[in-house]
Computed example of a mutant assay.
Amino acid sequence: MIDLDDLDRKILRSLQQDATQSASVLGRRLGLSQPATWRRIKRLEQAGAIAGRRLVLNREQLGFGVTVFLGVKLVAKGRVSLEDFERAVSAIREVQTVEHVLGLYDYRLRVVATDLADFERILRRRIMTLPGVGTVEANVLLSEERRPGPL
């Protein structure tokens, strides 16, 4: 775990809200010079506190009107079948997240589709044919009130 001071926390909080801001803009806001801000950001990246930056797309505006969470229970849980399943499911472009979980299911998937008919096609032809798939439970997302936010 990295040792953070108050300025580091402020930098991380600010970058979580807007990762596109420059070191000079961020520095001005925090009372630091651009080089000092840039050095702190680089140190946070090198220490692993900043794992990356990403762009959040509006799925609905891009034609993906349905989001479904799938609980997947594998029939065989040997080491090979886990790796085979993970490799195969990660190759499906509509699968947004693959989470190996503890509980009723072995995996939790977030799948996007244009509509329910498209989701059914993805489920029948792509997901149900994956190696080791046993039981699958689907939950259709009705609304998303809060997206992942700051730590």
Rank of each mutant, 00 (worst) to 15 (best):
M1V: 04
D3S: 00
D5P: 04
L7C: 04
L7P: 03
R13M: 13
R13H: 14
L15E: 11
L15K: 08
L15F: 10
Q21C: 09
S24D: 05
V25I: 09
L26W: 11
L26H: 06
G27S: 12
R29D: 11
G31C: 07
L32P: 03
L32F: 03
L32G: 01
L32D: 04
P35Y: 12
A36P: 05
T37A: 13
T37F: 12
W38F: 14
W38K: 11
W38P: 01
W38N: 15
R39W: 10
R39T: 04
R40E: 11
R40T: 05
I41V: 15
K42Y: 05
K42H: 08
R43H: 11
G48W: 12
A49V: 09
I50R: 13
G52C: 09
G52M: 06
V56R: 07
L57D: 00
N58E: 11
N58W: 01
R59E: 02
L62A: 14
L62I: 07
G63A: 01
G63K: 03
F64Y: 15
F64T: 00
F64N: 07
G65Q: 12
T67N: 08
T67V: 13
F69Y: 15
L70H: 03
A76W: 05
K77I: 10
V80Y: 11
S81C: 02
L82W: 13
E83F: 07
D84G: 15
D84K: 14
F85A: 02
E86W: 05
V89F: 02
V89G: 05
V89I: 14
S90P: 01
A91G: 05
A91W: 00
A91R: 13
R93H: 11
E94A: 13
V95H: 10
V95S: 09
Q96G: 09
Q96V: 14
T97I: 10
E99L: 13
E99Y: 14
V101I: 15
L104D: 10
L104H: 07
D106C: 05
Y107N: 11
R108A: 12
L109K: 08
L109S: 04
L109I: 10
R110H: 15
R110F: 09
R110Q: 15
V112E: 13
T114Q: 15
T114A: 14
A117R: 08
E120T: 10
R121K: 02
L123M: 02
L123W: 00
R124W: 00
R125N: 07
R125F: 01
R126H: 04
M128Q: 13
L130H: 01
V133N: 02
V133M: 04
V133C: 02
V136F: 00
L141I: 07
S143I: 06
E145V: 09
E145Y: 12
E145H: 12
R147T: 08
G149C: 00
G149D: 05
P150H: 02
L151A: 07
